[in-house]
């Protein structure tokens, strides 16, 4: 198991390194000049070149990459002389548009995105799994048909429609204060304020994901129910409740763990549409603003790398968790 872990960890690091390199290369070949974008229309070439030097863009791409990696471990210096400043490690770069260290920007956005993702995650698991189990247990009955309708509705409605509909409803019934909307409230200071802030974004995301999970749970429960070992469980004399909880769900939900982990990791990279609709200052909005408004290269590199890291690390965690759930994986 330790050997396996070490191997997986090494592979994970490798993937992250490769992703960071590709991100750097992609932005290097794009026909955009970040130095030119740092100042306005009437900028003199001298200022642009000075900024290029301060951004560290006047050296070859591999040197830029080397500085970036180094900055992750030690404080990074920008510029020289009186204009010099530094970002503390781990430094993901410095945003000249926002005039802040990228790490600070991310540190501000991450709790928002994490709050959004974790709440939506539990909500969609709760809705998806319960509806899926009910639909499977009442196969062919009205409950099953109602859940099928829900699945179709949830899958076919894109978040930019459902999000706006939910927002409009919430505003119409005065459930959200439009001025306070999107303001970050720490769950440690005011759990209720935090939840109130996030409940509608949670619902928006959960609606989209829960539909898929309902369908998946339903088919897994039905498939597991016809397994021989479920008949054995009944033959032992176990009650239907125990058969469902202990025997069917254990086997039916294990595969759901895999996709749930990856979906969650994907959301941690930022839910661009939902964050924009609800004015949430999370990672999704940070990256989309960096791309659309001002081509803020250091921010784009950092958020892309972060999103990839979340997925790769979560993948590893899911695999480890799976070994605990399914003993057949453990020995292999």
């Amino acid at each position: 198991m330790l050997k396996y872990l070490a191997r997986r960890l090494a592979a994970t690091l490798m993937v992250i390194t490769l992703v960071s390199m590709s991100v750097f290369l992609i932005f290097d070949v794009l026909p955009m000049d970040p130095a030119r974008l740092t100042c306005g229309k009437g900028c003199s070439p001298a200022v642009i070149e000075a900024n290029r030097h301060r951004l560290g863009l006047d050296v070859p791409v591999q040197v830029q990459y080397g500085r970036f990696v180094k900055g992750l471990f030690v404080d990074r210096q920008y510029g020289d002389g009186a204009a010099a400043f530094s970002c503390p490690a781990p430094a993901f770069g410095y945003s000249f548009n926002r005039h802040e260290c990228v790490t600070t920007l991310i540190a501000d956005a991450l709790p928002v995105t994490f709050s959004l993702a974790i709440g939506a995650f539990f909500l969609w698991l709760l809705i998806g799994i319960s509806l899926g189990v009910i639909a499977a247990k009442r196969q062919g009955k009205w409950q099953d048909k109602a859940s099928t309708a829900f699945v179709l509705f949830g899958i076919s409605l894109p978040t930019f429609i459902s999000g706006i509909l939910i927002l409009l409803m919430a505003l119409k019934f005065r459930l959200i204060d439009p001025i306070e909307m999107g303001r970050w409230v720490s769950p440690f200071e005011s759990p209720i304020g935090w939840a109130k802030n996030f409940i509608f974004p949670w619902l928006t995301l959960a609606l989209a994901f829960a539909a898929t999970y309902t369908r998946f749970t339903r088919s897994n429960v039905l498939e597991t129910s016809s397994e021989d070992y479920i008949r054995t469980a009944r033959a032992k004399g176990l009650s239907e409740k125990v058969v469902l909880r202990k025997h069917i769900l254990r086997a039916a939900l294990a595969p759901i763990l895999t996709i749930a982990g990856l979906d969650f990791a994907g959301l941690l990279g930022g839910a661009i549409i939902t964050e924009n609709i609800f004015n949430l200052p999370g990672l999704g909005r940070l990256s989309i603003r960096a791309v659309l408004n001002d081509y803020d290269l250091p921010v784009i590199v950092a958020t892309t790398l972060l999103a990839a890291t979340f997925v790769v690390v979560m993948n590893l965690l899911v695999d480890i968790a799976y070994a605990y759930i399914d003993p057949r994986v453990r020995v292999a």
Binding site: E227, D228, Y229, R231, T232, A233, R234, A235, K236, G237, H247, R250, A251, A254, I325, D326, P327, R328
Partner: peptide, 20 residues
């Protein structure tokens, strides 16, 4: 009654035990 008064074993022992 199942398990206590009457019990049953099945054809395929490969699939009749819970793998987890």
């Amino acid at each position: 009654l199942r398990g206590k008064s009457m019990a049953m074993i099945f054809q395929d022992p490969m699939s009749a035990l819970h793998p987890y």
